[in-house]
């Protein structure tokens, strides 16, 4: 788990140093989707081979739906008072 944090911090540091190297950064930008495709492909393979996942797939889908509904409802509930607060007349310019 610590390797994830180390990779991330290392990347941020190097990214900060490479800020001016636009061509190198755009190459990295183009590589990233490929890596994500590969990872999701591998994730698909291991999930497809996982009997526990296959047996419970409809239950897992329902849980996923409920958790996203909870997260969306919670964040929208807080956004309503924040919207009122930020759009008070004296704050009009900020929004």
């Amino acid at each position: 788990m610590i390797y994830v944090t180390i990779s991330l911090l290392l990347g941020i540091g190097i990214g900060f140093l490479l800020k001016k190297r636009k061509t190198l950064l755009s190459t990295i930008d183009r590589l990233t989707p490929g890596i994500i495709f590969a990872l999701l492909f591998f994730l698909g393979i291991s999930l497809g081979m996982n009997e526990k996942v296959i047996a419970n797939i409809s239950k897992l889908g329902l849980y996923a739906l409920l958790i996203s509904a909870g997260g969306i409802a919670g964040s929208i509930c807080l956004s309503i008072p924040l919207y009122r607060y930020l759009s008070r007349p004296e704050d009009k310019r900020t929004l």
Partner: peptide, 13 residues
């Protein structure tokens, strides 16, 4: 790890 590293580069730059 490579992906996280690249994500980090994106953030840092």
């Amino acid at each position: 790890y490579a992906l996280i590293f690249f994500v980090g580069i994106g953030i840092g730059s």
